[in-house]
Amino acid sequence: MTDILESNNPLSTASSTEKTSSRTKAKNPAFVIMCRELKSYFSSPIAYIVTGLFTLASGFLFFNTFFLANRAELRQFFGLLPVLFSFFIPALSMRSFAEEKKSTSLETLLTLPVTVFDVVAGKFLAVFISGLVLLIPSLFYVLTCFIFGSPDAGPILGGYLGSIFLTAGFSAIGIFASSTTKNQIIAFFEAFAICIILTLLSNFAVFLPAFLVRTVTYLSSLSHFESICRGIIDSRDIVYFVSLTVIFFALTVRSVKNGQK
């Protein structure tokens, strides 16, 4: 009887509606999409294959220095990390939009009460977190360094901080490339091309006229990453990576919106 009275009570009904509404608002669409993407990624063998290959490649770089050069440091690991990420981050991101565009499930997703910004944010966060997961096994290298040597903690902390910014920037590039095509392979090579060009740009600056060297060096992600890895926190390096992430994030939003037309 009490339940019936409560169900007929307008105040009770209004209160129930407010609770339902608050629960709905509490579930951020971007967060829901991120969780869905992560669950889909880590339930497939691709996640473990990519992580395994990255661990093998990075482990070779570290132990090559550790055993052959007899140095307990992570300099070579961080030095070549942008090149590794130029390959592995696009491998993580290539399916984010391309797969859904091919199966037309992206169109269905966009008919739900979510914005394009929410969709892009959710997918970006999923790729970003997946990229950070790749770094977890490398903590073993840090432990090894401190057990068998006395490395400077500053460059190591700087290296991981730079790795976070680098992951964010390359993740934004990866989802942008994936949003421009229905083919995952094309998305991979498009993202790889952009990432590797940005990484190696400073290496070709010596072949350019003097007035272009400074500009080209600034556009290179490697020069900014190396600066942070030295333990030097310069606002110009932070601005570069934040700008890189924001620009390609915005381009992805625009690409997805244009795809709806």
Rank of each mutant, 00 (worst) to 15 (best):
T104M: 13
F117Q: 11
G159Y: 01
F170K: 02
L109K: 05
S202V: 04
N70A: 15
F88I: 11
L161D: 01
A177Y: 09
V119T: 12
G131I: 02
F188S: 12
S150H: 14
F66N: 04
M94T: 11
F88H: 10
G154C: 00
T115Y: 06
I173V: 15
I186Y: 12
P155Q: 11
S163P: 09
A193V: 09
F204L: 15
L74V: 05
T144V: 14
A126S: 15
S150I: 08
T144Q: 10
L125C: 10
A191D: 02
L139S: 12
A191V: 07
C195A: 15
G158A: 05
S93P: 06
L74Y: 02
S163Q: 07
G149W: 06
V127W: 02
G158I: 01
E190Q: 11
S130E: 01
L92K: 04
I194G: 04
E99Y: 13
A98E: 03
E73F: 06
G174F: 03
L132I: 12
I196Q: 10
T108W: 11
S105N: 00
Q76L: 13
F87G: 09
L84G: 06
F66H: 06
F66S: 05
F88T: 07
F97W: 08
E99D: 15
F204E: 02
L125F: 15
